[in-house]
Design a protein around this nucleic acid. Structure first.
Length: 429
RNA sequence: GGAGAGGUGGCUGAGUGGUCGAAAGCGCCGGUUUGCUAAACCGGUGAUCGGGUAUUACCUGAUCCGCAGGUUCGAAUCCUGUCCUCUCCGCCA
């Protein structure tokens, strides 16, 4: 959420920003609502003030008649105030609904453009895409030959988009998690396993919409809980409604959770196999920082993602996300796209991680503040999130890039200690 | 799942209808004392939303004692619902 006053005082900049992000919000209407809300607030305050004043004099009434008269006056003022107050609530609700639609402001260096075709490539990973002297397979086919997945059983049990991991894929899944966790522990991230469900209130706070036609979220019937789409949700909620001591900042967490996404309306070749699934496991980074630290923290999270994928010997490119493709909460977002030799006709880049600086956009609704040593009052923290390892997609990258002519998979050196062996043996003939 | 207890400021913890935004302690900030540090002593110290005067300050109103309602002229205090925490019992991986 943006600050109300900020919107009112920077109407032009906010409107421009909405346009750049492809979000249709009427700033003028918001300002109008805000002015009317303020006016109504003043009316309610004044009626309450009068009623409070009357209440205080009741003890001083000299006669029973006088006392009753004052009580009646007080009752009248309270009723009037109650009515104004309901009008105030109605205005607040209307204003809030509009308020929620505003996206975050945007970093001035983010590329300008309507969609991902305007994304700007910033740099490439250490590993170059391999020249294969055979036709590389995609992970689905590799998995079939090596008996790593069972998509049919997944569909039978839970429907399309679900899967079983089998055999070495299970070990790889766990190895990838542990690999990421160990690297982040060395960087002083606090490791946590988060709940896989969260209250809808927490989802809203982090900018996710549990209900609605385009929702990505599975909600639990007869409750106000939803399955989380990412541990960003639970990690953001971890410190909700808290005032953190400044000396604790910045706080870094890495959280492991399952992630559930409805992926409504997404089908086709680009989403074959593990690429777009309803459930996967993810190690997520999350940071709470002072405002002045968030820009450099984003660079740090991105650098860690790069280090993780350099370690996996996976070729990738880092992309600076265009304004129209940022989503609501992000002020700036970097995606890491891994080279997947089996994807498309001759290999394609596919998104494997994403890191965002959400500035105070999430913190405002989640109520996460700190008390600055200098100056008075409290200030909102900045929040950032970044994927360390989304297992399903990392699995694709590791399998497809590590495949050999004999059908075996070479395991990246950094992963061997966690996986337990340096290859997945070729299929028995 | 059953029974009980409880949710109060940055923290601990008093407070059962008005003078309570809330005792006390801790912490924090300022000051006195001090060779330095500490101790001791004195003073200050909540959040949110408005309004006013105003060169970063002051004055003023409203709201807030888990959350949402209700009773009342008036609620931290009484009532209802709800969420959460703790203890005990049951069940269970």
């Amino acid at each position: 959420m943006l600050d109300r006053k900020f919107i009112v005082e920077n109407a032009d900049a906010v409107q421009k920003n909405c346009t750049a992000r492809g979000v249709d919000v009427d700033v003028a209407r918001f300002i109008n609502l805000y002015d009317r809300w303020k006016q109504k607030q003043t009316e309610v305050d004044e009626l309450n003030r009068q009623a409070n004043a009357v209440s205080k004099t009741i003890g001083q009434a000299k006669t029973p008649e006088d006392r009753e008269a004052r009580k009646a006056e007080g009752r009248r003022l309270r009723e009037e105030g109650g009515e104004r107050s309901r009008e105030l609530d109605a205005l607040a609700e209307e204003m809030d609904e509009l308020h929620r639609q505003f996206p975050n402001m945007t970093h001035p260096d983010a590329p300008h453009g309507a969609d991902d075709t305007a994304n700007r490539v910033l740099r490439y990973g250490k590993t170059e895409p391999r020249q294969f002297d055979f036709q590389p397979l995609d992970h689905v086919e590799l998995g079939e030959r090596l008996d790593l997945f069972d998509f049919e059983a997944g569909a039978k049990v839970a429907g399309h988009g679900f899967y079983f991991l089998k055999n070495d894929a299970v070990l790889l899944d766990l190895a990838l998690q542990r690999y990421a966790l160990d690297m982040l522990r060395k960087e002083d991230f606090v490791p946590v396993v988060t709940p896989d469900l969260a209250r809808n209130e927490v989802l809203h706070g982090t900018g996710y919409m549990p209900r609605g036609p385009e929702t990505q979220i599975y909600s639990i019937e007869n409750s106000d809980l939803s399955l989380i789409a990412t541990a960003e949700i639970t990690l953001g909620g971890l410190h909700a409604q808290e005032i953190l001591p400044e000396e604790q900042l910045p706080l870094f967490y890495c959280g492991i959770s399952h992630c559930y996404r409805t992926e409504a309306g997404a089908h086709g070749k680009a989403t074959r196999g593990l690429y777009r699934v309803h459930q996967f496991t993810k190690v997520e980074m999350f940071a709470f920082t002072r405002p002045e630290e968030s820009d450099t923290t984003l660079e740090r999270l991105c650098a860690l993602e790069c280090a993780l994928f350099d370690g996996l010997e996976v070729p990738y490119q880092v992309v600076d996300t265009a304004t129209g493709d940022l989503g609501g909460p992000a002020y700036r977002k970097y995606d890491l796209e891994a080279w997947m030799p089996g994807r498309g006709d001759a290999g394609e880049y596919g998104e494997v991680t994403s890191t965002s600086n959400c500035t105070d956009f999430q913190a405002r609704r989640l109520g996460i503040r700190f008390r600055p040593k200098e100056g008075k009052g409290t200030q909102l923290v900045h929040t950032l999130n970044g994927t360390a390892i989304a297992v399903s997609r990392a699995l694709i990258a590791v399998l497809e890039n590590g495949q050999q002519a004999d059908g075996s998979i070479t395991i990246p050196v950094a992963l061997v200690p966690y996986f337990g062996q340096d290859q997945i043996a070729p299929p028995a003939k």
